[in-house]
Design a protein around this nucleic acid. Structure first.
Lengths: 107, 107
DNA sequence: CTTCAATATCAAGATATATTGATTTATTGA
DNA sequence: TCAATAAATCAATATATCTTGATATTGAAG
């Protein structure tokens, strides 16, 4: 029940659903790229990423000072159904802006 | 997206998950029977039932002053998956106490 | 029409969650 | 060691949600 409610409450926010959809579509991205792509301030983004990670949807791979977030794999049945449903929502995704490769990544 | 978030936020509460599980198990029940079975005060119960109904999980059939709530049918794919997941949680259900048939149903 | 029972809604306070800007931590490289 | 950068955490405020008790609504019965 705790595990279930943690997953549900992670999904219970428009920002996080969009974030999941974006990561699902674009694969592993570091926080500063998510920031530039989604136009969110860093602390807000970091908080939502943590909630999605704790909710079992995301994994983090650290590489130096960068943290790459991606959809956790494998997802359990419920979370993978949830993600499938999100794919069906037809959410409009903003373009990917990768500052991490242009050298402009100063938070 | 609105429809999706309405479903998710309806599920985002332990009380409502238990309520769904109870109705799923026991079929159509009036508010006063849910009250006696789940030990909830009437206004609280009524509020949660409304949220589950608005979230697309429940239907109401009125019969005189009684309101019988039950799982809506058919549920869409996502809601039906959610209900299936709830069934798998192994939630302990309290016994059904039907005051509506013993004449003790005075709120 | 009046009363009563079942349910719904409202108002107030309590609790939880979200947002922002500031600060802290960790890692890299000079 | 020190400075700089990416990311995480904190503190304060704003906003949303939950709970309770009181009140309103609706239908049935006298």
């Amino acid at each position: 029940m705790e595990n279930y409610l943690e997953a549900i409450s992670a999904l219970n926010d428009e920002t996080r659903v969009k974030l999941l959809a974006f990561l699902d579509h674009h694969g592993p991205l570091c926080v500063c790229d998510l920031q530039s792509s989604l136009g969110m301030i860093q602390s807000r983004l970091s908080r939502h990423l943590k909630i999605l990670k704790d909710g079992g949807f995301l994994r983090v791979d650290r590489c130096g000072t960068w943290a790459y977030y991606s959809i956790r794999s494998p997802l359990d049945r419920f979370r993978s159904e949830a993600l499938a449903e999100i794919r069906c929502l037809g959410i409009e995704l903003p373009p990917l802006v990768k500052l991490s490769e242009t050298g402009d990544c100063k938070v």
